[in-house]
Design a protein around this nucleic acid. Structure first.
Lengths: 229, 229
DNA sequence: AAATTTACTATACAGTGTATATATACAGCG
DNA sequence: CGCTGTATATATACACTGTATAGTAAATTT
């Protein structure tokens, strides 16, 4: 047998490969991802995967984009579940959704923010659209706060002129918002990311169930610091 | 030739192996670490390394412990460079030293806080002493603030009784300090870690030289929030 | 019906960590 | 000095990885 008849072939093999990859990542961790193992599970040969992904890294990139998309969906959904006029509540909801998503899909989180794949480095330009979108919910909420005059940014460092270019990339994918809002969103992101990443890594054991109390405290800290009135 | 004469053997082969490993990590990244490549550089065979490290993971563990020790040294040194009565300044110095160390040794930082080694998971009990020590400088400064009545912890979440046990481990290695101080230290750590990890990962481009301004802003935020008067 | 493209298999290569067996150099002891 | 035991290395081999290449059968197009 050299090749099975098409009737027995899987139609959406590209999707099926990714599903098998996620399944493996969920079970054995992202670092154990192996083309051959995927092929084994799908009962095809390893080089066959090359018809759909030029290399293992391209498969990983596709998975990362999927993960960012999943995070972005979760973030946008959390924001839009609350009325547009309750900006503070929306910000809190987005924050809660972030940790919730990370704890629901720790492997996806690690795939994005850790680097558990040997020798893999994400190609920025391919990943950026979905990455920017995943932050867009937070960014939009901060921007709304700013437009309402409720953003407290006394003493916030100015974005230096020579770095504005870096932000342009984000703006093209994440919506045309004020540089200041983007900056504040990124520092808020760094805070929640700080706790969540330590929690996912298991370095933050001693608070409530899975660091919940501490996380709520940080969300309050963020609100107190950045929301006026 | 089956084995070279002892005169040509390297005496501290264990240390030499680690040095070669760091050299490789610095050059090709932590994920590219390979026993065989180390052996090639040292002109020995790969299995010879097994006389000094039972497995590749044990070598990685040794490297991680070294990295934590290096971080701890840097932290303690930064703290002790300033007079004991200037607690706020000491805290800031420790914070600055953290980012400085991370930017000086990004590979070490990634080795500790990322998981770039395929299939490796750090054995907590072996790593914890050096890990706890690396945080001890910050913890001690926070504890000093608390003892001086300068720690602002209104509304700080209580450590729940069932999790106090987790802290005991830290206390045995990081000094006998108050649980509250330890908790506050960990949230401060999560903040600086949040920024620094994003910066190391290259996700935080648009602020001053390498995120310096933003980091200083966060150190101020921390001081404003947690230091009374 | 013939030609072309697609989608796979088969095979092979260089790399990895590591288990096993083996040989030598050295230390200690008679 | 010679013998023995152990530490320290080599040699070899196995199973695994990603991936390059070639070939073949099926499906599609002409």
């Amino acid at each position: 047998m050299v090749r099975p008849t098409l009737k027995k072939q899987t139609p959406n093999l590209k999707e099926v490969i990714k599903e098998a990859a996620w399944k493996q990542i969920a079970e054995f961790g992202a670092s154990a991802l192996s083309l051959r193992a995927i092929a084994r599970e799908l009962k095809i040969t390893a080089p066959a995967i090359y018809n759909y992904f030029p290399s293992r890294d391209d498969l990983v990139t596709a998975l990362i984009i999927d993960a960012y998309t999943s995070l972005g969906d979760s973030q946008i959904e959390a924001r839009d579940a609350l009325p547009q006029n309750g900006i503070s509540k929306r910000m809190r909801a987005v924050g809660l959704a972030y940790r919730n998503w990370a704890n629901t899909y720790p492997q996806r989180y690690q795939l994005i923010f850790g680097t558990p794949i040997p020798g893999y480095e994400a190609p920025l330009m391919e990943v950026l659209p979905s990455a920017a979108r995943s932050l867009s919910a937070l960014v939009s909420v901060v921007e709304q706060l700013r437009q309402a005059g409720k953003l407290n940014v006394d003493a916030f460092p100015k974005v230096r002129a020579e770095y504005k270019e870096s932000f342009e990339i984000w703006k093209t994918h994440g919506g045309d918002v004020d540089l200041l809002s983007l900056s504040v969103a990124m520092i808020i992101w760094s805070r929640v990311h700080g706790i969540v990443s330590l929690e996912i890594a298991g370095s933050l054991p001693p608070f409530g169930p899975s660091g919940n109390d501490l996380y709520l405290y940080e969300l309050d800290s963020i609100a107190n610091q950045f929301i006026k009135e």
